[in-house]
């Protein structure tokens, strides 16, 4: 297995991590904490939006993020022949 290939694989992996972790940070720390008061002025049904992100929305996004990661990485493994 060539070193070049490994390096490229690792770089793409890091790019995925950066994107996914930014979303992770935004839904919890930004929407649920830092901007919670601003978002609370928006309402969805009985929920204030900021409160909803902090107690519900962030968790749903976390689950989705991991499953997207699984898909991306399975594809990436295949592309580089690291799947088994």
């Amino acid at each position: 297995m060539s070193l070049e290939k490994q390096k490229k694989y690792w770089k793409e992996n890091l790019r995925y991590l950066a994107i996914l972790l930014s979303i992770w940070f935004i839904v919890s720390y930004v929407f649920g904490i830092l901007l919670v008061d601003q978002l609370n002025t928006i309402r969805i049904g009985g929920f204030k939006l900021g409160f909803w992100f902090a107690q519900q929305g962030a968790i749903y996004v976390f689950v989705i993020l991991i499953f997207i990661y699984i898909r991306l990485m399975n594809k990436l493994d295949k592309k580089y022949g690291f799947d088994e």
């Binding site: 991590l17 972790l21 919670v36 107690q55």
Partner: peptide, 29 residues
């Protein structure tokens, strides 16, 4: 605990689930 803390209790909800994103992406594999 959340029942008595309201919004402040969100730290447990986000904290104890968000850790799994770190675990899945940065540690487990």
């Amino acid at each position: 605990l959340i029942s008595f803390k309201g919004y402040d209790g969100s730290v447990y909800l986000m904290g104890w689930t968000g850790g799994y994103v770190l675990l899945a992406l940065l540690l487990a594999p």
